[in-house]
Design a protein around this nucleic acid. Sequence first.
DNA 1: ATGTCATTGTATCAATTTGATACAAAGGTA
DNA 2: TACCTTTGTATCAAATTGATACAATGACAT
Lengths: 248, 248
Amino acid sequence: MENRDQKFALTATMEELMRSIPSYIPQFSVDCVIFGFHGSELKVLLSKFHNLDIWALHGGFIGQDEDMDAAAHRTLCDHTGITGIYLEQFHIFGKANRQTYRFMETIFEDTPIPEVLENFFKKRFISVGYFALVDFSKVNPVSALVFEKSAWFDVHELPKMAFDHADIIQKALEYLRRSLDYKLVGFNLMPECFTMNELQRLYETILGEKFQRTNFQRKILDMRILERLATKQTGKGHKAPFLYRFKT
Amino acid sequence: MENRDQKFALTATMEELMRSIPSYIPQFSVDCVIFGFHGSELKVLLSKFHNLDIWALHGGFIGQDEDMDAAAHRTLCDHTGITGIYLEQFHIFGKANRQTYRFMETIFEDTPIPEVLENFFKKRFISVGYFALVDFSKVNPVSALVFEKSAWFDVHELPKMAFDHADIIQKALEYLRRSLDYKLVGFNLMPECFTMNELQRLYETILGEKFQRTNFQRKILDMRILERLATKQTGKGHKAPFLYRFKT
DNA sequence: ATGTCATTGTATCAATTTGATACAAAGGTA
DNA sequence: TACCTTTGTATCAAATTGATACAATGACAT
């Protein structure tokens, strides 16, 4: 019974997809790695397929008359409900064996696959990887299309992933490390106000190394990218830390 | 007369292109920015279109069953005649208005454009930018397809460029600067043996800044990436510099 | 031969940046 | 009020970087 409802929901949203497919560039997709920061850990937002214990990145296609960046933003907004997210392309995945069709068959089980979908998905795909930096607390994950639900996962404890999506996340993380911009990354991943300690945890989890508290503080303050606010009134048994905010 | 011969050559190679087009992924291309180093300047290899005073990067398409990286290597080999070149993707260009068709019409002048080509080129294109690092002295530019000839240009003195190719070169240069790896770049752009002074000129032209001779020498030697060979017997009126080679 | 000139290889010192440690100032609890 | 913990800041040593000095070399003119 429950299974039947899901199957119905699945095919219903598929109808929508089918109608829009002719307006997309064939064999080309966008995949977004959505990073968030919570509880001292770097997270990625993933979605689970109906009927399968497999998770995937949020992907989409590009309209014939649509800028690629715009397509990435649209895809992202569809799945998170927020706009104005920081987004940047980091790599193109173009191996010859990037097919999604065999996977489609599993999702559809014994339901016949519509011809439009078959023609679209049976070909090999090239995909642009984008990464997004979002304020964890502002995201309200939206399930759409073939997805049953969304959830945040620790970057180092990923579930079983679809296609080459685990590789894509790995590449995104490498890119983030290599081209780390303290202001950009902090500004987009942290909430409005935060303590120096929380900020340090962010960079530690991204770079995978520990910093010395006092030197980290000096380094960040010397950059002059933060405004110091009032001290935070903690209920903890120690001196209350200052709160900071990124200068605009 | 001369014009007529050129037109003939143009359409003859076009026949070849037409036959291969159905095996390519539509609306998707690869463009290579080929960097070389000569006479204290960073150069890019460009090709000139027949009948037009417009130069372009070397581009190509991707076979349906071909890895994207392989397609880039193939394209590069077609135009330079050398294999095993260092090649890396750096950006994907996906603005909605990336059309080549209007340009095609100019090239064809009043010759009718074959339908296969028309269908292929009339759509908007997405292009992956690759950059190549080659030993200037080893390249023997090969003209192919719609190109009349190839030539090296100083990165800062580009001729009139086709499409958005000037932007693509700019992006490639920015990428090269941002992710500068001293060993990688030097190893691929320098000839087998070179003096410290020549190496310094390379990094100065890439980064667009002057270094202090003595400190540059110390910095590079401290990296332990070079082997020192015998001194070079110059005909110059001063102390002969050592020759160096990158460690393998 | 000898002196001049330009360039190279190396040493050296100062200035700056980075790493490590010390310590007083809170904020809560016993 | 003593005690514990964490925070903010100062300070010193170590490492890196910037700037300058100088002897060594190779060709040429005298």
